[in-house]
Design a protein around this nucleic acid. Structure first.
Lengths: 236, 236
DNA sequence: ACTCGTTTTTATGTAGTACAAAAACATTTG
DNA sequence: CAAATGTTTTTGTACTACATAAAAACGAGT
């Protein structure tokens, strides 16, 4: 261990970065250094390629990445402009339960529980009668049908509505992306448990209770998941 | 509105997608359809390019994106393999307070408040004496120095430690990425307020209190930020 | 027969050229 | 003067060529 760290001090790690990787970073630095703002025009491809000393090919591989993230937009003749990327775009592209690691999957599952529990304060800041009524309609529609598929869709609708009521668009989209992960973990665990507090109970709390009541209710609603977590933690 | 939607039903929207965009999607679909798992080898570039009917150039632009996200790795001769992407990698690349939109910035600020408030349950699942002592050391080191720069660094250290104690690596990294955003918003607002509950108070609660105590303490600690939020919401 | 070193093969990484397409700009013509 | 048309410019796509690295195959020597 000691020897290894000594070595790593003396010898620079070989960067297996490809040119496209380097160019991507250099472009990012360049944007920062020049403090470009969204809307600003960028030099054309050939100029950039020449300035960086790489082929237009490599440059375009790097630009392709930035374009995917929404950092730049290009129009045929007008050239490229810097733009405001969608903060969740890169996240969405990667969120496939089948390819992300089990550890990360578990982390994201926990993350959603944390979000649900933390939602109360912001939710109560935005509360209004209209949205509570809409939520109630969703909650009440559960009794009628009993199919499993419908229950899951309804579960999604209810919690999604809660996020929407928090009035934070990024949060709502984030939650929506997390749904497949949540569903996948539950499916693997082969259980779709429901706590002692129902959706309808939660609606009642929103009507007449306060933040703490809601939080406690939400905890009870999610209790089976927390119990599962606790059991998991004890094993490790 | 009605006319417009009628039209959009009859006429397909012109996709201004570039070939690289299309290829990126097609590759993603292909991986799913074949249910490739991390570690599986992928066909070589030429085969893919021919199968898709595009130049190797375009294909590589798409692959470059997937490589950036960590979805694929390539070794010189062995070809490409699918791999487990870092779920936060794409996020990190985009999280520059100077280029993301003010709305998204505000959303992320809220998101961090929500996370802090929701942390209690998972935190208490992982609580142990050692980490509490470490947290206490951080909290106590505040009194000694009074420089602004130190206060901010300490603020970061304290809250970062809390996330670390929750035992969720993805969450901790997420919080760490959000720090610049948080700092930026506060800097723009030109205030670095502190609630009535200090870091040391929070440590005491962790020692002898329960989850609800901690949550209430955290709310008071963050109260200035929530007050600011409330004022903002009222304006809109 | 086994190990070590050399050569061959193969896939990716990079460069360069060429041309198509679209959009802004310039010019011509009624 | 306006509309139509042509020109220029920049991105998008294709193709070729070669460098490079690494596995695989091969061969020599003990």
């Amino acid at each position: 261990m000691a020897l290894k760290s000594d070595l790593s001090l003396d010898i620079d790690k070989i960067s297996s970065d490809t040119m496209a990787d380097v160019v991507e970073m250099r472009l990012r630095d360049y944007f920062k250094k020049k403090s470009f703002k969204p809307g600003d025009a960028l030099p054309k491809e050939q100029e950039l390629a020449e300035a960086l000393g790489v082929s237009r090919n490599v440059l375009r591989e790097a630009l392709s990445r930035l374009r995917m993230l929404g950092m730049i937009e290009t129009k045929k003749k007008r050239g490229m402009i810097l733009s405001s990327p969608d903060v969740l775009g890169g996240f969405q592209r990667v969120l496939d339960p089948l390819i992300i690691s089990p550890d990360a999957l578990q982390d994201l599952f926990e993350l959603r529980l944390i979000l649900e529990m933390g939602l109360a304060d912001v939710l109560f800041l935005n509360l209004n009668d209209k949205s509570i009524r809409e939520l109630e309609i969703i909650a009440n529609s559960e009794k009628k049908k009993n199919k499993e598929a419908f229950r899951i869709a309804n579960e999604i609708a209810f919690h999604g509505k809660l996020y929407e009521m928090a009035g934070n668009d990024t949060l709502k989209r984030f939650q929506h992306m997390l749904l497949p992960v949540f569903g996948f973990v539950l499916q693997v665990e082969n259980e779709f448990l429901s706590g002692s507090v129902s959706h309808q109970d939660l609606v009642e709390i929103l009507k007449s209770g306060n933040k703490d009541d809601f939080r406690n209710g939400m905890y009870e609603h999610l209790k089976p998941h927390f119990d599962r977590l606790e059991a998991l933690k004890k094993i490790n």
